[in-house]
């Protein structure tokens, strides 16, 4: 059951959400970590940490480093693996009155397929988000998302196997994001989310060493918002598929920028670390904005940027 004020409700790929605010993969764990901090049912939905076939221990520390108005991370897809996810993490998520989107990652196309097949048999999942854009693992992840052909093949294989609507999560680390967006749409993606993190690095000049053990990592936070916004705008304009925008969203105004640029929904990532209540503050903020401006439905605002 999903409740909420109807002027904020949105429907994408046949799934109805009480509001357009999701929390982003990797920044909200399996939901349970934030249970004591606010009523999770107020969220439009929760996107889980990326789930792989086997449990992964992730990269050695340091895995995070703060940079100007942002942060680098190289977690290395540390997660419990699909079996333990289903047994230990999904029951809690299912108990919440919000939508559950499981993010899937893999090193090979067949790993993505296998994870999806196992998730098919579980109840309580509303959608899958396919991470073809993680910059922090050697194989898979970004290797799929950075090339048009492999992005197409991965999403095509997942589409064939998934009983759920799928969101393709795109990487900004490409020459032409519109081309990749076209490819995953053609492969059967029901929606597109963007952006994942931008490849970045930081150096300790005293020790002459990289500040992340993985040397490079993914940049997120307010620093990447302008990049994310431009990409959302380009993709939303060019491709007829619902777009979920993310990258540096910290408050209601940021969320509105993405919506005006063409995002049907938004995700809050790094901001959860700064203020765990960011997402529900945005839900309230969007509601207030609609009331103040006499907007009947938030969906009326999607893509309403006056750019001519």
């Amino acid at each position: 059951m999903v409740s909420g004020s109807s002027h904020l409700s949105v429907k994408i790929a046949g799934v109805e959400f009480s509001n357009p605010v999701l929390v982003a993969s990797g920044t909200f764990g399996y939901g349970e970590e934030y249970e004591s901090l606010f009523d999770l049912s107020k969220l439009g939905g929760i996107v889980t940490k990326s789930i792989t076939l086997e449990p992964r221990e992730g990269h050695p520390p340091p895995r995070t480093f703060e940079t100007s108005c942002g942060m680098l991370n190289a977690i290395g897809l540390a997660n419990v693996g699909v079996e333990r996810f289903i047994k230990e993490k999904l029951p809690f998520l299912k108990s919440l009155k919000t939508r559950i989107i499981v993010n899937v990652a893999g090193s090979t196309v067949s790993e993505y397929e296998e994870v999806v097949k196992r998730l098919n048999r579980s109840k309580g999942i509303d959608m899958l988000e396919i991470n073809i854009s993680c910059p922090n693992v050697k194989e898979g992840g970004i290797a799929f998302g950075s090339k048009v052909k492999s992005a197409y093949e991965c999403i095509k294989a997942v589409r064939k196997n998934s009983s759920y609507p799928i969101i393709a999560k795109l990487s900004p680390n490409v020459t032409d994001i519109v081309e990749v967006a076209h490819a995953v749409k053609k492969a059967g993606a029901d929606a597109i989310s963007l952006i994942n993190t931008l490849v970045g690095m930081a150096v300790d000049v005293e020790r002459r060493r990289p500040l992340l053990a993985n040397i490079t990592g993914g940049l997120s936070g307010p620093a990447i918002k302008p990049v994310a916004l431009a990409m959302v705008w380009k993709v939303a304009k060019a491709v007829k598929v619902p777009v979920i925008g993310l990258g540096g969203i910290m408050n209601t105004e940021d969320a509105l920028e993405f919506i005006l640029a063409g995002a049907s929904m938004i995700q809050v990532g790094t901001a959860n670390f700064v203020d765990p209540q960011t997402s529900i503050k945005i839900v309230d903020g969007l509601s207030e904005y609609c009331k103040k401006k006499g907007i009947r439905k938030i969906t009326d605002l999607v893509g309403k940027l006056k750019a001519d």
């Binding site: 990797g26 920044t27 909200f28 764990g29 970590e33 934030y34 901090l37 940490k49 992730g58 050695p60 520390p61 340091p62 895995r63 995070t64 480093f65 703060e66 942060m71 991370n73 977690i75 540390a78 790094t270 959860n272 670390f273 765990p276």
Partner: peptide
């Protein structure tokens, strides 16, 4: 250790 979320969600502070 460098820490991001502080609530166990991000796995950014491993030992």
């Amino acid at each position: 250790g460098n820490m991001a979320c502080g609530v166990g969600a991000c796995w950014g502070c491993p030992v």
